[in-house]
């Protein structure tokens, strides 16, 4: 990047109107607001059912100043391909075609269409905001819900299975750009989205997105919780280009350092309250092993 994004040089132009229906303290609101700043006006959005559908407004009022087509749940990747196909057919260049979906819409019901678009090498940006459950329908487990999390469909013991690693699945398609980001690090997110706009082919950005009602924490802690996920080494910020994974910003700074125990992250959220200490230990072990690997690779 020529100019590093700073709070001061970030554009004041807003593409999202206030007074929309997002929950108080919504992580997606931050991701959406900052992401659209990076994408800019010359953008077309493709959105399946999700919190974003509601946040974008009920007919006939839209909260977003970017053209958008709402599509069926399973079809986002294909619909984005269709928009790009039309742009090519109509000889319209220079428009960012951006699919913007939740974790369920991306990794569960939408993965077939997304996989197809990646395999075909469609010239689209796909942004997944991962709030780790079906929040729009009232907090049901999804493929990306972490192990041990209480949801309305894992109400007592918490989810038994591990979180599905969507960015790794997408990266396995061999596409040119895969990145992870967090609502708690808006400038890192901004730079990754901005970088994506300068590339072509399928580009995928997976954004960890805290959700106060879904994760059961007070609205003021959205940034704090998001930061803890990164600082404990649980959710890592990276880019994958040409098959090479590079940690970025806040995660990169953790290399070779002592990380905060993941328990700190669990303790500030109601959704982890049924975790038994044994599982906490297991989960900490997994994080430690992962970082040992990162550190080893760093030394090579």
């Amino acid at each position: 990047m020529d100019n590093k994004a700073t709070i001061l040089n970030l554009t004041e132009e807003e593409f999202v109107h206030p007074g929309n229906r997002a929950c108080s303290g919504c992580g997606l609101s931050i991701v959406y607001r900052i992401g659209l700043k990076a994408l800019g006006k010359n953008t077309v959005l493709v959105v399946p059912p999700s919190c974003l559908t509601v946040m974008q407004g009920l007919y006939p009022v839209a909260s977003t100043k970017i053209p958008c087509v709402n599509v069926t749940f399973a079809s986002t990747g294909a619909a984005a391909s269709g928009v790009r196909g039309a742009m090519k057919a109509l000889k319209k260049d220079g428009v960012n075609v951006v699919a913007w979906a939740g974790d369920g819409g991306t990794g569960d019901i939408g993965i077939q269409a997304l996989s197809g678009a990646c395999e075909r090498g469609e010239d689209i940006i796909y942004i997944c905001y991962d709030n780790e459950a079906y929040m729009n329908t009232g907090i049901q487990r999804s493929g990306t819900t972490p192990q041990g999390v209480l949801t309305t469909t894992t109400p007592i013991r918490g989810k038994l299975q591990e979180k599905k690693d969507i960015p790794a699945i997408i990266a396995a398609h061999g596409i040119g750009y895969v990145a992870t980001a967090s609502a708690a690090f808006p400038l890192d997110l901004y730079e990754k989205v901005k970088k994506a706009t300068t590339l072509s082919g399928p580009r995928y950005i997976h954004v960890h997105t805290p959700c106060p009602p879904g994760w059961n924490f007070a609205t003021r802690y959205t940034i704090k919780v998001g930061k803890l996920a990164v600082e404990t080494g649980l959710f890592d910020l990276y880019e994958i280009e040409d098959g090479r994974l590079t940690l970025t910003g806040p995660s990169k700074r953790l290399l070779g350092k002592k990380r905060k125990p993941v328990k700190e992250y669990f303790d500030v959220q109601g959704r982890f309250k049924s975790l038994d200490p044994e599982l906490v230990e297991t989960l900490q072990g997994r994080i430690d092993a992962k970082w040992e690997n990162y550190n080893d690779q760093q030394q090579q």
Binding site: H17, P18, G19, N20, R21, Q56, G57, L58, Y59, P60, V61, A62, S63, T64, K65
Partner: peptide
């Protein structure tokens, strides 16, 4: 069809 135009306050005076 349902085609919304951008404007503030879709959710009211939040």
């Amino acid at each position: 069809l349902s085609r919304s135009k951008p404007g503030p306050g879709d959710g009211g005076k939040t």
